[in-house]
Write a protein that binds this DNA or RNA. Sequence first.
DNA 1: CGCTAGATTGACTGGTCAGTCAGCCGAACC
DNA 2: GGTTCGGCTGACTGACCAGTCAATCTAGCG
Lengths: 207, 207
Amino acid sequence: MSQPPAPDKRRAILDAAITVFARQGFHSARVSDVAAEAGVAYGLVYHYFDSKDQMLNELFSERWALLVEASQEVRSSDAPPRDKLAGVANFIIESYRHEPELMKVIIVEVTRAANSFGRTHLPEIRQAYDLVAEIVSDAQKAGEFRDDVDPNFAAMVFYGAIEQLLTGWIFESIPGADDDYERAKRLVIETICDGLEPRPVSDAVAG
Amino acid sequence: MSQPPAPDKRRAILDAAITVFARQGFHSARVSDVAAEAGVAYGLVYHYFDSKDQMLNELFSERWALLVEASQEVRSSDAPPRDKLAGVANFIIESYRHEPELMKVIIVEVTRAANSFGRTHLPEIRQAYDLVAEIVSDAQKAGEFRDDVDPNFAAMVFYGAIEQLLTGWIFESIPGADDDYERAKRLVIETICDGLEPRPVSDAVAG
DNA sequence: CGCTAGATTGACTGGTCAGTCAGCCGAACC
DNA sequence: GGTTCGGCTGACTGACCAGTCAATCTAGCG
């Protein structure tokens, strides 16, 4: 079944962890479940990892780094700000489409779990938020976005919207057919960007 | 300090639970912590509540019902849709300003905890989302919002944005001075509504 | 006072896992 | 064939904590 060279059980355990954490949630997933899913003895998990937590940490950091990297690239491109934000939204949503289990774990167990793992990874998470804030800030300086909006607040709104959409798909609260993803991308970009673009329109609306 | 009538230890325990859950998070809060915070014997908690979970359930349901009620009132008012959404956003954000600990618990432990308590309370949570979706849908039928956007998606974006803002305040990632709250309200309404309003503007932007 | 019922107490139990560890297996090398 | 060493095994331990329960206290009542 497997060749002599390197069965790479470590990777198998990590993959099993994705499946199990996605299925049962990190908290109610036992280490023995992960071992069973990987077809490996209980103790081997501790040969490769220091703790149950470390597995999740590694899954998260590995993937989140890609997001940060992609965001950095997007930011330093010379596309218009709307397209930059679209690029970030696109990356996140496509990540989910290609690896829904991993993204489920990351969103549900880390990003949205502000009390447990979210705390631990706050600096990394913040890094991604900050990049969006910087994209907004850049656009403001160039006069392409209105400048009476705090970029950090805009970033929160942006990420909050996307995360909620992902959560909706993860728990099947909203339909997730192919064109739903595309429509969702457009919706986020249009709503957020239209609100951020300079407004020649009236200013006195609210009471 | 207290009169003979009814010391209402039950309420004291519930209030203590808010404090403790907000401080330590539900998971790492021990029932003994709640009892100690309430100045009450361990066993008494189980005289008034069936389980640790029940306390959180009760805290959530009690408060969430108010949100649903307020949303219903807003929806059936005859204000313009933008003001309706502003009403809902206002209610949530003011709830946080007045009872930050309780709202922290509700957001962090229930609303964002899609795997644990979020699951249990999904119907209630959904009820609130649906009301926003209906506000959007009503506006679409009246021609006040563009109708090529799924109201459920719009509701997710709306709630996601607000929830993220609250989370930012809860964990002090974004500033929470008095005028920050007001600015945040405006930002959410402006971004979301501008994106939802009928657009005489061009349609061909994306690639 | 004697009795009942509800409030209150806190020591104790039972179940659950994360993490440990003593040792086995097989490949490579002498 | 012996020795070494990393990968690998899984039974076991120790800590933790939700929930139980038998006992005590207090108030009202006849």
